[in-house]
Amino acid sequence: MPDKNKPRQEVIRGYVLFAVTLIAAAIILWIFPTKITVATTTAWNYFLEMVMILPAVMVIMGLFSVFVSKELVVKYLGKTSGIKGILLAVFFGALPTGPLYIAFPLAVALRSKGASVSNIVIFLSAWACIKLPQELVELQFLGIKFMAARLALTILFVAIMGIFIEKLIEWTDKKRIGVSQELGK
């Protein structure tokens, strides 16, 4: 089964890479013994902070990826528009349901269901950068002020970008239709 072997190989490669990094770090610190304390205490502190939240973050990701079906997203986003559509696009994009490359075919399905260009752009961008587990890790490491400010600004500007791209595509399409109509005369 090639489908099952490929991810396994990637995982093994990840651990090999980690071993190489660790050995390299050990050699570097062996050459510069005065740096050992700073390096190891810093690494240990970050390790502790990560270990406290990583399992929980993974559980949240796993739950959402299984419980929120792709059909559900397409069903709701395909028909809502306006402010409600924007909010829904951000909401569904932010749910932790998988990596970005899963979202592209989903966006195509959305388009065939009649979703607006702005909603598709907002959905994709939210999927890429406003993931719930990401926000939680950001909260842990960068604090509530940083996380909340970046989240609010991102939602705002992603919405503006979505509407802008929609208008731009509408405008260029209209121009093209106009030209082809003139040619048809």
């Binding site: 980690f18 990094t21 770090a25 740096k35």
Partner: peptide, 13 residues
């Protein structure tokens, strides 16, 4: 783990 090791080195060096 890799990024944690890199952070440790980054802060030290």
């Amino acid at each position: 783990f890799i990024i944690i090791v890199i952070i440790g080195l980054l802060m030290a060096f």
